[in-house]
């Protein structure tokens, strides 16, 4: 399986990449890790005439602290996230999630930017980014703008990214120290997309949940923020009735596709279980 013919571009600055994307229009695609795009090109599900390889742009790499937030370059790989002491210290949930993505070889190439920006509802990072209140820095011909992850996803493969725009960085505000976290992912085998997955970030005070954020992966055509479910656990000690209520509130917004991972009823059922497990595990980790 060999992809169709295309022209290869390897710009060394964001400005050059944006200029290429703008001038080449719809026929151009940015190439990050390539582990979604290249398989799609082999199957002719994607047939770009131009690929703009982002590996030559040094400014898209790296993880740095800026005031009260962590800024992760879009071309930072999953492997680099796993190796980063900054990520381990501030956002262990990022590490937990990255370890559940694909396999070691794919994590050496696959990037955080590619994972969040292509709009595949099966990708794990988008729901986590919504849970973490992250925002995406988009650079285009008309300048730079920041879009909240929770405003970015519009449908399967449809996002707020405008033609000519490039995702350059992901910005995550630091969370309270002592927070509890968990990413629970049910998958059929290593490397598979989630049958259902849930991300939870919470803080506890005196045995009660003080704040909580819950994200859902692959349970709709976009990642979801389960706000009603999160509200349901505030002020509680996460007793069984509360967990069940949170699970039900989360299930109300799930609309998964029926596919080889199971029928709709099953995926909603296990989606609820992922929410309960993630809540319990996060609470056990909270200081």
């Amino acid at each position: 399986m060999i992809p169709g013919a295309f022209n290869y571009h390897c710009p060394s600055t964001v400005a050059d990449a944006v200029a290429l994307l703008s001038s080449l229009g719809d026929e151009a695609r940015p190439l990050a890790g390539g582990h979604s795009l290249i398989p799609m090109m082999k199957l002719r599900l994607a047939t770009p005439e131009h690929l703009i390889d982002l590996h030559g742009i040094a400014s898209l790499k790296g993880i740095r602290q800026e005031a009260d937030r962590l800024v992760i370059g879009a071309m930072t790989t999953q492997h680099e996230l796993l190796a980063s002491p900054e990520v381990s210290a501030a956002f262990p949930i990022l590490k937990e999630t990255a370890l559940l993505i694909a396999d070691p070889q794919v994590r050496y190439r696959g990037t955080l930017g590619g994972n969040v920006v292509n709009g595949d509802p099966g990708n794990d990072m988008p729901a986590l980014m919504m849970t973490l209140h992250a925002s995406y820095r988009l650079e285009g011909p008309d300048g730079v703008r920041d879009v909240a992850a929770s405003d970015f996803y519009q449908g399967a493969y449809f996002t707020a990214l405008e033609p000519g725009e490039l995702l350059t960085a992901i910005t995550i505000p630091f969370t309270a120290s002592g927070h509890g976290y968990a990413y629970e992912k049910l998958k059929r085998k290593v490397g598979d997309y989630a049958t259902a997955a849930a991300a939870v970030m919470l803080t506890m005070a005196n045995g009660k949940v003080e704040s909580c954020s819950i994200g859902l992966t692959n349970l709709s055509d976009t990642p979801l923020l389960a706000e009603a479910a999160a509200d349901a656990v505030i002020g509680t000690g996460l007793d069984d009735d509360t967990l069940k209520k949170a699970s039900e509130r989360a299930q109300e917004i799930m609309s998964p596709a029926a596919d080889a991972r199971g029928p709709v009823e099953y995926r909603k059922h296990v989606g609820g279980i992922m929410v309960m497990r993630a809540l319990k595990r996060a609470a056990a980790r909270a200081a």
């Binding site: 290869y8 390539g34 070889q105 794919v106 050496y108 190439r109």
Partner: peptide, 18 residues
């Protein structure tokens, strides 16, 4: 799988030009 600059890579999912 081949090793490229210290990384294990599936060489069916990378272009030679890269």
């Amino acid at each position: 799988t081949v090793d490229i600059d210290g990384m294990s890579v599936k060489s069916c999912t990378m272009f030679a030009v890269q």
